[in-house]
Structures are given as structure tokens and as C-alpha cells.
Write a protein that binds this DNA or RNA. Structure first.
Lengths: 172, 172
DNA sequence: CGACGTTTGATATAATCAATAACAATTATC
DNA sequence: GATAATTGTTATTGATTATATCAAACGTCG
């Protein structure tokens, strides 16, 4: 019997009756994740979604996405760089970075300046407003977002987690 | 001077000359990630992309995405469930799950069966082919994908990482 | 029974994100 | 100076995620 002839058959042979459960199901309506919980990619994805969700909530007053925040941070710490350099560092493809910059520039958070030495490239600079927004965003992220994560995991676990994730991103 | 008048000015004041660097930049062409490396969401995302990329490579002979693999796994361990139950467990919205199932069903990896007790719902079952593909996929994932991860991190670190990610997904 | 609200799978559609090809302007190489 | 390579940009495609809506089927309650 490859596929049961009727759905009743399928349900019959497949779902153990309560009391016959041998695993941790405990029939609370939740499904068995089974080997899924041991799959790193799965947990990684679910955790990432949760973290991004919380990031958006915490920084909502400034209307910044994680990607936009990372751009502002990078611009602040790497002045004098062009679009290709910033985009590739963040793993953003150059074509997709154009619209991102347009959005930030239209909000006057950063500006493109033609380079004097290479007139093809645009040097990216934070505006004063951009620096101010970044400063406020950093505070929100540190005090609301990361603080909650550190509280949940404990400081040393949080540090160990960061270290392992960085290692995966770097060496895997 | 909010925004430098010329890009030369911007580059001049902003980029420290080699030898004046006070941080870990060491002018190797790489940009300073700075506080970005301390941002959990950022490392999480980068690591997740790497892991998914490797997953796709390892399971390429079976042409399965991580999402498809998770569906097959869940079907195997939760027989007799309908689309809504499987989709919501995986965080997939019901409308988006339809096309996903169409693809799996067209490859004869699973089948929809009308339930006898509730003729609205479709009971999802793995076909024999689906079970065979899943078994082969599990081996590839365990021997090629997860094995490399465990080797990189060490078994106890790998377990600790899984635990923390699950905690974030669950409680954050 | 019959009206009403709910659930299930499905469709259509929009928004976002990611990826490739191609182009003009400019620079580098030989 | 001819040719190749780089930079920012546009256009376009595909994948992913999200919302609204629908018909069929179920449940409840009068």
C-alpha cells in the first residue's frame, strides 16, 4: 500500500491513539518537529525571523529596516567609500543597492558625492541628520533589542552565540 | 561642515592614512564591520544564508530546497494532518503553501487525499517515492551538510548553538 | 430543519527581496 | 590610441511573503 486508498485508512494507520504515544508528542495539538529541531538551518531561519521582527519593533520610531541600519553603520565607520564597496561588504548586489540608497538619500540620511579622483564612482557620506538618526537607532538597538536578547541568553551565552555565527559566516 | 563640499574633502578627513589606524582595520581592503559584528541579527542572517547555500549544494542531486525538505520531514513524522496544520507549523501562510504542495505533488513526492470525516480538508501523505527521496535527503544532509557544521564548531558547540537558536525562536 | 458564522483549500494580487543582462560614462592596460 | 575593465544605473525576472476574497463544507444555535 503506497498511498492509502482512503483518507480514513491514512489517518488510521498513521496517527497513534492517545496513550499509545511513545514519543514526546503528548497530543497537545502541536506537531512533532522531529529531526527538524536538529536541523541547524531550520532553527537559524526561525531565530533570524524572530530577531528581525523584534529589531523592527524596537527601531520603529525611526523607520529603519535592519538592512538600512547596517548601511548607516557601515557608512559611519567607513567614510570615503563608494557604492560598490559598501554594497559588496553587506552582501548586497550593486543593482539592488541603487534603490536602497535612493531611499536613504531622499530622507537626507546620506548623500552621494562624485569622486574627484574617479569620476565614475560615488563617495557615500552620512549627513548630519543621518548621524543623528544613527545615534538614536544605536541606543534603541542596544537598550531595547540587544538588551532583551542578552537577558534571555545570558551575557556569556550571547557572546558565544555571536562568535559561532560569525565563524559560520566566515568559514563555512 | 555637514556634507563636505567635494568628495576629495570627504576622503581626506575621513579615511585615516595607513599607519595612523587605531583600530583593527590593517588596510587590507576589507571594510570595518565595527558594531555590525556585535549585532546578533546581522550575524544570524549571514550565517543563515551560508547554511542554506550549503544545504542546497549538498542536496542538489535530489533537487530539494530547505523548505521542501522540511515539508517532507514533517509529513513523515505527522501523518494524517491537513494543509493548514502542516503549513502553520512551518510558519508558511496557507495561500503560499498551495503552490508548494502542487510542486511536490507534481513530482509525486506527496499526495492530497480528501478526508472522509471533513470533506473540506486534504490529508497529506508521503508517497513511496517521497519516502525514498526523504531517506536519501536525510543521509545527504546528515553526512555532508550537518557533518561539516559539526566539524567546524565541534559537537558540543553545535549542540549549544542549536539550543540557543531554539530558545530564541521559542521565547524571544 | 435552516440561518449564520467559521474553517479549509484555493485564487488573485501586491510588496519585497534577490539575481542577471545590458548600457553609458569613465578609467586602466597595452 | 584601441581595447578591456569598472562604476553606477536601468530593466527585468524569479522567489518569497503578505492580504483579501471565494466556494465548499462544517458547526452552532434557535
Amino acid at each position: 500500500m503506497t498511498v492509502p486508498k482512503t483518507a480514513a485508512d491514512a489517518a488510521k494507520v498513521s496517527r497513534p491513539v492517545a496513550g499509545q504515544d511513545l514519543d514526546a508528542s503528548s497530543d497537545d495539538g502541536l506537531l512533532h518537529l522531529g529531526e527538524l529541531s536538529g536541523l541547524l538551518g531550520y532553527s537559524l531561519k526561525r531565530a533570524q525571523l524572530k530577531v528581525f521582527e523584534d529589531f523592527l519593533r524596537c527601531v520603529a520610531p525611526l523607520q529603519l529596516t535592519p538592512a538600512q541600519f547596517s548601511v548607516l553603520l557601515l557608512l559611519d565607520q567607513n567614510p570615503g567609500r563608494n557604492q560598490t564597496e559598501i554594497a559588496s561588504t553587506l552582501g548586497i548586489l550593486r543593482p539592488n543597492f541603487v534603490a536602497m540608497l535612493d531611499a536613504l538619500e531622499s530622507r537626507e540620511l546620506c548623500a552621494r558625492m562624485r569622486s574627484a579622483s574617479d569620476r565614475r564612482s560615488h563617495i557615500l557620506v552620512l549627513t548630519d541628520k543621518g548621524r543623528a538618526v544613527l545615534a538614536r537607532a544605536k541606543k534603541l538597538v542596544a537598550n531595547k533589542h540587544e538588551a532583551r536578547l542578552i537577558e534571555l541568553l545570558g551575557p556569556e551565552n550571547h557572546a558565544a552565540l555571536l562568535e559561532m555565527l560569525a565563524k559560520i559566516a566566515r568559514e563555512f
